[in-house]
Amino acid sequence: MNLDTGKNAIIRLFNVTKHYGGKPALHNVSLDIEPGEFVFISGPSGAGKSTLLKVLYLAETVSAGQILIDGMNLSRISPARLPFLRRRFGMVFQDFKLIPTLTVFDNVALALEVAGKKPSFIRKKVMHVLRVTGMEKKAHMLPPTLSGGEQQRVAVARAVAGDPDIILADEPTGSLDQASARRVLEILLAYHKKGGTILVASHHLQQLQTVVTGRSIVLEKGRLISATRLEPYAL
């Protein structure tokens, strides 16, 4: 493996393998992602897309191989520093992971509160991202009272609120109708335009591809089987 090619890479995977007990969910995956890239991870259900994202923010640890995030080796991160690593990521979870007892506002604010931001800053920032995602009118509602698409947008708002270097989105349009999916993608795209690095895992790629320039990575049975550049289409 040529180490020089990935000099500027913000995410580097070296022969990463992940077993959940039996057969590998990821098998020998090596990958470099440059800052500011928009990466699509596609492949059939069970291919290891979610697992690939999970090992990046250490929701799962790898069975073999190494991962570097901005030069930091994840295998050497102490539990005390793990929260600081996670604050560099904005995560959009497949199941949203919103706290049902907190309002939309508080859910988004949480991402800033954990980083110790000032309340006045938090208020401004949260209202800003809620405006961007079109959720400011529902700021004081509880997540269970919202539709799937709305919850998804709240999840995206929380992911971008902390101005993370990297956004990891797992099936961010999975449960959405065409219009909502497009809306979510536009938000991610806007973030990408500001220079953010974005990884999106999805099994219906076509819908996404039409939107943006980027790289497409295909996983199958835990193996990386192709990596191609996507040409831009008009929105």
Partner: peptide, 12 residues
């Protein structure tokens, strides 16, 4: 668990 995932320390 969610708090941890978004970067909360144990102290928080």
């Amino acid at each position: 668990e969610i708090m941890r995932l978004v970067g909360a320390t144990d102290r928080f």
